[in-house]
Simulated scan of single mutants.
Amino acid sequence: MNSRRDRSNRTALFDGIEEGGIRANYSHEIDEHENDRAIDGLQDRVNLLKRLSGDINEEVESHNRMLDRMGNDMDASRGILSGTMDRFKMVFEKKSSRRMFTLVAIFVVLFLVIYYLVK
């Protein structure tokens, strides 16, 4: 409101100074009107951008919280999986040593059988 009053005071101060007197004043009022409309349009755009940026900020924060929860869940899953993998390794090591022993025993028996057959 004050800015419009200041503008009207400004136009009253410069009234008649420009060439053309009334035409210049009329043109100046039209320019002021166009400027006021442009300012109002810009204010609307700024308000819209502020609301959008607020919405974007909320969205980013919610995604960050979701990613943090997902990271924590992944860490917990990693711990469980590493324990499971350790158990699998122990089972496979035991089975592989059994298999190796079985294989060696079979080779020894085959060697003895072949040895006695050849002799």
Results as ranks from 00 to 15, higher is better:
2 N>L: 11
2 N>H: 09
3 S>W: 08
5 R>S: 11
5 R>W: 09
6 D>L: 09
6 D>V: 08
6 D>Q: 11
8 S>W: 03
9 N>T: 05
9 N>F: 07
9 N>Y: 07
11 T>K: 09
12 A>N: 13
12 A>I: 08
12 A>M: 13
13 L>E: 13
14 F>E: 09
15 D>M: 12
15 D>Q: 12
16 G>D: 00
17 I>H: 02
17 I>R: 02
18 E>N: 06
19 E>M: 06
19 E>V: 06
20 G>D: 01
20 G>S: 00
20 G>Q: 00
22 I>A: 07
23 R>E: 14
23 R>H: 12
23 R>A: 12
23 R>F: 11
24 A>Y: 00
24 A>F: 01
25 N>R: 10
26 Y>G: 07
27 S>M: 13
28 H>F: 03
30 I>Y: 05
30 I>F: 02
31 D>E: 14
32 E>R: 06
32 E>T: 04
33 H>K: 12
33 H>V: 04
33 H>T: 12
34 E>V: 09
35 N>M: 11
35 N>D: 11
36 D>Q: 13
37 R>H: 07
37 R>S: 10
38 A>D: 06
38 A>L: 05
39 I>S: 03
40 D>Q: 12
41 G>N: 08
43 Q>I: 05
45 R>H: 03
46 V>N: 02
47 N>S: 15
47 N>L: 14
47 N>Y: 05
47 N>K: 14
48 L>H: 13
48 L>E: 13
48 L>F: 12
49 L>T: 01
50 K>L: 15
52 L>C: 08
53 S>W: 10
55 D>M: 03
56 I>P: 00
56 I>D: 00
56 I>N: 02
57 N>V: 06
57 N>H: 14
57 N>R: 12
58 E>S: 14
62 S>D: 14
62 S>Q: 15
63 H>D: 09
64 N>M: 15
64 N>S: 15
65 R>P: 01
66 M>N: 14
66 M>E: 15
68 D>C: 07
69 R>C: 03
71 G>N: 14
71 G>C: 09
72 N>S: 10
72 N>R: 12
73 D>P: 02
73 D>L: 05
75 D>H: 01
76 A>F: 07
76 A>Q: 12
76 A>M: 05
77 S>I: 07
78 R>S: 05
78 R>D: 10
79 G>M: 01
79 G>L: 02
80 I>N: 06
80 I>Y: 05
81 L>Y: 02
81 L>V: 03
83 G>R: 14
83 G>I: 04
84 T>H: 13
85 M>K: 06
86 D>R: 06
87 R>A: 15
87 R>P: 00
89 K>T: 10
92 F>C: 04
94 K>R: 15
95 K>P: 01
96 S>E: 14
96 S>F: 10
98 R>T: 10
98 R>V: 09
98 R>G: 09
98 R>E: 15
99 R>W: 06
100 M>F: 10
101 F>I: 03
101 F>Y: 08
102 T>E: 11
103 L>C: 09
104 V>F: 00
104 V>T: 09
106 I>F: 03
108 V>T: 05
108 V>N: 01
108 V>P: 00
111 F>P: 00
112 L>Q: 02
112 L>G: 00
112 L>D: 01
113 V>P: 00
113 V>C: 03
113 V>E: 03
